[in-house]
């Protein structure tokens, strides 16, 4: 358990809903759900969810903090927006799902090894190095995330695609040497840092 998580528990005591409203992107919408279930039924990946959005909202209201934040459900969202379009209360469900995932991640209690979370982490780490995503190193990082042997297998599987991209000049093998970044690296870093400060302040992670 991280300090951030302990702080949050202490601060909101028994009201997980208030915690969500304060810290989760679009979290204040959770109270507006009327439990019709249309989001749950509209999700194309619904079968893969332990808890559909409508149920997550009810769990939040019922104060099931651990179950919600440790759930992998919201990580399943593919942003198809079916739920948002159909929600009779106009809840921005997709955004709330991402908000919940992000919050759980920040608290360090999101499910370990959850593929969406791992991919997103790799993507982010790759991105903030130079302000651009290095597709080659990102792809390789993904291939090798489950170990060296699996990584070789993955790479061999994708060999034809990779060569095709190189041929079509869509992938530069030289990028493996670090690749190029955005022009003002220092400015980019400062911007990211500032954004993080603002978010931390808003979501209660400020030191």
């Amino acid at each position: 358990m991280t300090t951030a998580n302990q702080t949050a528990i202490a601060k909101y005591k028994n009201s997980f809903l208030k915690e969500v409203e304060a810290n989760v992107e679009e979290g204040h919408w959770v109270r507006m759900c009327m439990q019709c279930g249309v989001c749950a039924g509209s999700c194309p990946l619904g079968n893969a969810w332990a808890h559909p959005p409508q149920e997550l909202f009810m769990m939040i209201r019922a104060g099931k903090r651990e179950e919600v934040l440790a759930s992998d459900s919201m990580w399943m969202c593919t942003s198809c927006y079916n739920c948002i379009v159909r929600c009779p209360r106009k809840l921005p469900i997709t955004h709330i799902m991402h908000g919940l995932a992000n919050y759980a991640h920040r608290l360090g209690i999101a499910p370990k090894g959850q593929p969406t979370r791992e991919t997103a982490t790799l993507f982010w780490n790759n991105l903030i190095k130079k302000g651009r995503v290095n597709e080659l190193t990102f792809s390789l990082a993904l291939y090798f995330k489950d170990g060296f042997v699996q990584g070789i297998k993955n790479a061999l599987n994708m060999q034809a695609v990779g060569l095709g991209l190189v041929k079509a000049r869509r992938l530069n093998p030289m990028e493996i040497l670090g690749g190029h970044g955005v022009k003002d690296q220092a400015g980019f870093k400062a911007m990211i840092e500032k954004a993080r400060q603002i978010e931390d302040r808003k979501k209660g992670f400020a030191k």
């Binding site: 109270r31 507006m32 009327m34 439990q35 009810m58 209201r61 019922a62």
Partner: peptide, 14 residues
């Protein structure tokens, strides 16, 4: 009226 109360933070539990 229901929506308004939800907006004010009243929790509805079935």
């Amino acid at each position: 009226f229901y929506r308004s109360a939800q907006d004010k933070g009243v929790i509805f539990t079935k």
